[in-house]
Amino acid sequence: MSGERTDAGDEPADESLADDPPADEPPVVVKIGGAKAVDPAGAVGDAAHLTANGRRVVVVHGGSTVVDETIERLGMEPEYVESASGVTGRFTDAATMEAFTMAMAGTLNTELTALFREAGVDAVGLSGVDGGLLSGPRKSAIRVVEDGKKKIRRGEHSGRIESVNADLLSGLLADGYTPVVSPPMEGKESDGGVTPVNTDADRAAAAVAGALGADLVLLTDVAGVYADPDDPDTLIASAATPDELAAVEDAAEGFMGKKVMAAKEALSGGSGRVIVADANVNDPIIAALGGEGTTIERAAIAEQTETEGETA
């Protein structure tokens, strides 16, 4: 989509588009990263432009840097652990969970919602607990590797999303609102209780995109997935087959591996395409939807799933 932006407070250039979202365009779920190197300003401006022209947008945000800063201000040390599968993640005990909720659902979500509203977007801030938006069983113990040995750490407050209240999001979108969503999620206890727990923001965005059948744009601080992680000139532009997706998975290291995992989950859940793109370029969302970054098509996972089914 190109053309001049609609400034906050101005009438949209095309009122029919503003009133009725184009029938052939799915919603857009945008994940804004929480690292200091990610500037949300471009995404905020793009969301204002898209919503003014009738495109439905849901924003999901992370905030690991601010969470760590909050933990440190409270006199604690952020703790990261390595899982048995080799993935590094935050260990979230009860005290850390309190700081996490303060930073994510409190400070960050409120500040980001205010930025969108200032830009003319009718944004509504939500945590994953609100309305059971993001829900799944709480994980109270995790397997970790410490000093080369596998151990079980208890007292964890995390969960994997198993359900999304898509009706809540669809209702807000139909009424012209732009949901701004953050962890924590609703962690369901075995006794029927509910506990706010940590969940990965990329995977939260993936779950939302899948539930809405939306395009997913994962904004980060690099241009996309590089074949050589140290060489920006090796950007992988697209993956539309299982072999191409496998090449993307092989190339993705560290934090990018989590994003590719989230991309696969989004596509398996119903998203049409996922784009991993740079948050800091001009018009980052529009650029991503227009072909910038690394685009992973639904066909890559669909063909992969079909092949796996035939093999079974």
Score class of each variant (00 low, 15 high):
3 G>F: 05
6 T>D: 10
8 A>I: 06
13 A>N: 10
14 D>M: 01
16 S>T: 14
17 L>C: 00
18 A>S: 13
20 D>S: 13
25 E>H: 14
25 E>L: 15
26 P>M: 13
27 P>A: 15
28 V>Q: 01
33 G>S: 04
34 G>V: 14
35 A>H: 13
36 K>P: 01
40 P>Q: 01
42 G>T: 07
44 V>G: 00
47 A>W: 03
48 A>V: 09
48 A>N: 11
49 H>K: 14
53 N>I: 08
61 H>N: 05
72 E>K: 10
73 R>M: 11
74 L>K: 00
80 Y>S: 06
81 V>D: 14
82 E>S: 13
87 V>P: 00
89 G>M: 15
97 M>P: 14
103 A>K: 07
104 M>H: 11
106 G>Q: 06
107 T>P: 01
109 N>D: 02
113 T>N: 07
114 A>W: 02
120 G>V: 10
126 L>A: 07
127 S>R: 03
146 E>N: 08
155 G>V: 12
156 E>W: 03
157 H>R: 14
161 I>L: 15
165 N>L: 03
169 L>C: 02
173 L>W: 01
174 A>H: 00
177 Y>N: 06
177 Y>R: 14
192 G>Y: 11
195 T>G: 03
197 V>T: 06
201 A>S: 09
204 A>T: 08
207 A>W: 07
207 A>K: 12
210 G>R: 04
215 D>P: 00
215 D>H: 13
217 V>E: 04
217 V>S: 04
219 L>C: 03
223 A>Q: 06
225 V>P: 00
238 S>D: 07
239 A>K: 06
240 A>S: 15
242 P>I: 15
243 D>A: 14
244 E>N: 09
245 L>Y: 03
245 L>V: 01
245 L>W: 00
246 A>I: 14
247 A>I: 10
249 E>N: 08
249 E>Q: 09
251 A>T: 10
255 F>G: 03
256 M>E: 02
258 K>F: 02
260 V>A: 00
261 M>N: 06
262 A>N: 04
262 A>D: 04
264 K>P: 00
265 E>L: 13
271 S>N: 13
274 V>N: 10
275 I>F: 03
278 D>K: 02
281 V>A: 11
282 N>S: 15
284 P>Q: 09
288 A>E: 00
291 G>R: 05
292 E>P: 03
300 A>T: 08
301 I>F: 12
301 I>W: 14
310 E>H: 07
311 T>V: 11
